[in-house]
């Protein structure tokens, strides 16, 4: 469970709902008579500016953490080739021939080694999502026909990692999965 995201959302949601409820209650009480503004669209400039500043700070903090910049200047020690097709993942330590795709039965990577997944699709769009042993989503990229997406990741904990398809790809989408081991 990604608690931090859920908690962040809940805090923001509760704050904004409280503001709304409070404002609503002030309009119900009888002791004030039309102290509101004649034109509600006036004097909102400061609100916009504050909001803009908050959003800019949030953006500048989060953008450098985007997956495109992760491990960009390092040399991966292992590459796993992935070809997704309806409805399974072909994973191999070697390059996969699209005409006769064959994968390795077991994929193993070492803990703390930098792995590069080279992900493509042989038919429709698929998702390539890596779930840790506790079934928490930790990394993903898309498998798109005609393109190879390179996803780099360093697995800290040993265990069995699962791969689920996260882009709707047809009637057996929900059972399209694979796994690999981190030693």
């Amino acid at each position: 469970m990604h608690y931090s995201i859920l908690v962040l959302f809940l805090i923001l949601a509760v704050i904004s709902i409280s503001v709304f409820v409070y404002v609503f209650l002030t309009s119900k009480s009888n002791d004030n008579q039309s102290t509101g503004m004649a034109n509600a669209l006036q004097k909102r400039f400061w609100f916009i500016l504050i909001l803009l500043v908050i959003l800019c700070i949030f953006a500048s903090v989060t953008i450098p953490k985007s997956p495109y910049y992760q491990f960009a200047d390092k040399q991966p020690s292992k590459v796993i080739h992935v070809a997704a097709q309806q409805f399974n993942f072909i994973m191999s330590n070697n390059a996969i021939d699209p005409k006769s795709p064959v994968g390795d039965a077991y994929i193993t990577v070492d803990a703390n080694e930098l792995v590069e997944f080279r992900v493509t699709s042989l038919d429709v769009n698929h998702g390539f999502a890596i779930y840790d042993p506790a079934f928490k989503l930790i990394a993903q990229t898309q498998a798109m026909p005609g393109y190879i997406n390179r996803l780099r990741y360093q697995f800290k904990e040993p265990g069995l990692y699962h791969i689920l398809c996260l882009e709707y790809c047809g009637m057996a989408h929900q059972v399209m999965r694979s796994y690999f081991t981190v030693k």
């Binding site: 503001v19 709304f20 404002v23 609503f24 002030t26 309009s27 009888n30 004030n32 008579q33 039309s34 102290t35 509101g36 503004m37 509600a40 669209l41 909102r44 609100f47």
Partner: peptide, 11 residues
């Protein structure tokens, strides 16, 4: 904000 301000302490 406009909606909120329009309502705040207003009948």
């Amino acid at each position: 904000f406009s909606i909120v301000v329009a309502i705040y302490r207003t009948k």
